[in-house]
Simulated assay, not measured.
Amino acid sequence: MTIETESPAPSTPATPGGPLFSGIRVESLSYERNSMPRCGKCLSVDSFLPQNSCIADIPKPDVSLVRKLGAEFVGTFILIFCATAGPIVNEKYNGAETLIGKAACSGLGVMIVILSTGHISGAHVNPSLTIAFAALRHFPWIQVPAYIAAQVSASIAASFALKGIFHPFLSGGVTIPSRGVSTAQAFFMEFVITFILLFVATAVATDTRAVGELAGIAVGATVMLNILVAGSTSGASMNPVRTLGPAVAAGNYKHIWIYLVAPTIGAITGAAVYTIIKHKGDDAAGTSRRSFRRGKASSSHLCPSAHT
């Protein structure tokens, strides 16, 4: 009698030169690296509805919503504190930070937040990003209000903390169009730089072929680049809560609508453009590769109609 033994599965081939971040698994910026199912209906609920009933077909999260909101609050607090402190210090000490320093404060703030909380909450720290990902079905709509509430409250808390530390220099951290810059110019600039930001963020956060572990570096570098380009014109907010919190603390709401509307439209457009142009062959074949990752990606949970 012949006994057949199952040969062990081949190990994942080592990345040439070794992984860039050994042992780190960053689930940056997105609820799932796979897109939300596009069944045309809603999401299944398995507790009190029939099996095929739907309200929303979302995968069960491996982290509780409370912990996600906690991580989102802390991450947003860190980002707003750092991104706003740079311009305030620049104002208080007569240009000590310079534009490069202000760009570094925001870019490095984004990077460390993504690397530290991306695997918990996705490290959105930006309502425009949350809305854009939900609109493109990379994030469940049912969690959007809670995420935005955490982001807004963290922004206001960070801004009042800065007010307590640096008063009366908080006006340096408020994002308003620079002198000589029209409302239309500021609006278009915020739209374009947020488009760029979300194009990059969608690539590294939702495409399974992208290097997910480098999301923090890629997005942080994009933020720095955008501030170097637009910091002297519109203030380079790219984030409604980057403007809202300091505006509330300083009592300066001048042209605030620009920084609420333009980034949101730019974010949705940037995420949509990448979603349209990306190659979908891997997703259609059911494969899910992740660069510099060990282990298999989790399977997506699709409702029955998604398979037809």
Rank of each mutant, 00 (worst) to 15 (best):
I256D: 00
H279M: 05
T5C: 06
T208Y: 00
F199M: 12
T98L: 01
C54A: 03
H307F: 15
I58S: 09
R179W: 05
K68W: 01
A85V: 03
S7T: 08
T202A: 02
P10F: 03
M36P: 00
I114D: 07
E190G: 12
V144R: 01
T15I: 03
I193F: 10
A306Y: 10
R38L: 10
Q143M: 09
P263A: 11
A201R: 02
K254D: 14
G286K: 14
M1W: 08
S30A: 15
E213R: 01
L79A: 05
G122V: 04
S178K: 13
E32W: 07
T84L: 04
V192M: 14
G235Y: 07
H119K: 13
S44V: 13
G173H: 09
I227D: 06
G220R: 07
A230P: 05
V192W: 13
I58P: 00
T130H: 01
I256N: 02
C42R: 10
S106F: 04
E27G: 05
R294W: 01
R293C: 01
P140Y: 04
A146R: 08
A154K: 12
C105H: 10
V181Q: 05
G251H: 04
G251E: 04
T183N: 09
G17H: 11
P37Y: 02
A285I: 00
R25K: 14
G245Y: 13
G75F: 07
A247P: 13
